[in-house]
Design a binder for these strands. Structure first.
Lengths: 143, 143
DNA sequence: GGAATACCCACCAAAGCAGTTGGGATTAAA
DNA sequence: TTTAATCCCAACTGCTTTGGTGGGTATTCC
């Protein structure tokens, strides 16, 4: 049950933008180099993050990308969901209106629901600001 | 970040064996039918679970599979790990001795570690017995 | 005008997933 | 002693996803 590189790279890239927050638009090239990622691939991820409203972009020379909100208002959960889809371990407990045939009588289902809840609690409680400040203790108090 | 059918089917099948615990060996065919799974595919999963010591088998007519321990001593974590490998969202926080080049300075890493810990806490606290008894409230008290 | 950038879309190789197939070995029962 | 039920094993397959690459276009600053 792994994250794909979309989620991992995307989080790393967003973290970089959080570190350089307030410096105006940051170019894709810079982010890719700084985090050691393929520029072309990262472009696709940013396109997604933009669609979800987490990034804004400026075209042309000296253009680039910026977080659409302050780092304290962007959570890891928002980033991962926008790149990975929902973060449920099984579709039967996702919020997508998928429904499993056996539905009720399934003992596995509530196990998956518990896993999902615990993941959600973590990723929705950590913001980019927390990551920049390395706020481990803050998070621990929150959870 | 989904479980594969290995984890999902495997858990369902083990749950079935827990329900029929104490009835002697249970055939693959019965479990597959009861849970609506492909017999041939399930066979591979059982082979894995047996290697990990979670199942014992009896060959020949009237043979089958049994849990190797009482349901209260088999956790969801043991089952999922034996079928899915480690349950870390990223290899950089797995216990496998993988090590990431940037290691120290990676802010994403501790995020992944927090996710992993919360998953582990859930799956290691739920046993097959809990599932059979539908012990949701018991689990909630435990966590 | 030229350089730097974001935007868009098609394509691709490799790996993983979810089985299927086919045969063999072992054992209880008839 | 045959037969049917069962576990055991390994190869094969079609499909989808992953993790990119490449090429061209549009926009903006100097």
């Amino acid at each position: 049950m792994k994250l794909s590189t979309k989620g991992r790279y995307g989080l790393m890239a967003m973290y970089q933008l959080a570190q350089d927050y307030g410096q105006g638009p940051i170019s894709l090239k810079y982010v890719a180099e700084k985090q050691g990622l393929s520029e072309n691939y990262l472009e696709q991820l940013f396109s997604n993050l933009k669609k979800e409203g987490l990034l804004t972009s400026t075209r042309g020379a000296y253009g680039g990308y910026m977080l659409s909100r302050i780092p304290g208002e962007i959570t890891v959960g928002q980033i991962l969901r926008s790149l990975e889809g929902n973060m449920s371990p099984s579709d039967c407990v996702a919020d997508d209106g998928f429904d499993c045939a056996k539905d009720e009588s399934c003992a596995s289902k509530w196990v998956f629901a518990k896993i999902k809840d615990s993941i959600d609690r973590v990723i929705d409680s950590i913001t980019l600001e927390d990551m920049v400040n390395d706020n481990q203790s803050v998070i621990d108090r929150r959870m």
